[in-house]
């Protein structure tokens, strides 16, 4: 099984696994406490502090590990919300058609006619900025994209002759959705899930960077950039570590999603 995984996907899997493991095991592997001040401001890297210290003298590696935990956790939950909401309503609209479809689709058009960052800012200007609020806002705003995709995929499948054949046989909704439509919709949806996750990582990082996401002293990758941004002007690159982390995580998830897409479509039963 493992031998059949192409190199790119293997690299992706290893890195993705590494980041998720780090997120789960953060309290046990972080060398210091998350908000513990252990040194001077912006110390360079040393055997005690591999990545140096941050703007108020906390260990940067510790901050990165805890920050990854927050970022990955929020992105995962928001992706799940986005996915479940979007896919359920998307399939519903496709199978029901008629006014249900019209209602959902026009509403989604409306929400998507405002850039999601702008709409998120508008909503966050009146909402308390807490983790549940962030996750819900991100999840629901993003579910519009999942809705469009799953509706489009499902509509493509419902017009297939084999679905018509099932209806002519007298099959009920359950068989049609779960046995005819879903197996054929799965691979584009799973690949999309990877992309949505990356988008969520970028989204929460951006919000935190703007000061409207995770609030200090909690750490997350966007927040670390914000805290250490001033260092850039003095030639201190502490704010750039999250760039490396976010980019490697995003690229590796992308590689995995690509592989899932080709693997499932190349199955013997693939289209």
């Amino acid at each position: 099984m493992i031998r059949n995984i192409p190199l790119a996907a293997m690299v992706g899997l290893v890195f993705t696994g590494f980041y998720f493991a780090m997120a789960i095991l953060a309290p046990w592997i972080a060398p210091y406490g998350m908000a513990e001040i252990v040194g001077d401001v912006w110390e360079p890297s040393s055997p005690e502090h591999w990545l140096g210290t941050d703007n108020i003298g906390r260990d940067l590696l510790t901050r990165m590990i805890y920050g990854g935990r927050t970022t990955i956790f929020i992105a995962t939950v928001a992706t799940l919300i986005s996915f479940c909401t979007g896919a359920i309503f998307g399939f519903w609209a496709a199978v029901a058609g008629g006014w249900v479809d019209q209602l959902f689709s026009r509403f989604v058009d409306l929400v998507m006619s405002i850039p999601s960052l702008i709409l998120a800012l508008v909503i966050l200007s009146v909402m308390p900025v807490t983790v549940p609020v962030l996750v819900l806002v991100m999840g629901f705003l993003d579910s519009t994209r999942v809705f469009r995709l799953s509706r489009a995929v499902a509509v493509d499948i419902t017009v297939m002759d084999y679905v018509e054949a099932a209806k002519l046989r007298g099959e009920g909704y359950r068989w049609v959705i779960f046995r005819e439509i879903l197996p054929n919709a799965l691979s584009p949806l799973v690949a999309e899930m990877g992309l949505r996750f990356i988008f969520m990582v970028l989204f929460i990082s951006t919000l935190s960077f703007l000061g409207l996401g995770i609030q200090p002293p909690e750490a997350d990758w966007g927040g670390i950039v914000k805290e250490n941004a001033d260092g850039i002007n003095y030639g201190i690159g502490a704010a750039l570590y999250p760039a490396v982390a976010i980019a490697t995580l995003a690229i590796s998830v992308n590689l995995v999603a690509d592989w899932v897409l080709t693997r499932t479509t190349s199955l013997k039963g693939g289209r």
Partner: peptide, 14 residues
């Protein structure tokens, strides 16, 4: 009923 295009008349995952 039997259709013109046999490839889309059968679920590719079955």
């Amino acid at each position: 009923m039997i259709y013109q295009m046999a490839d889309v008349a059968m679920n590719p995952r079955q």
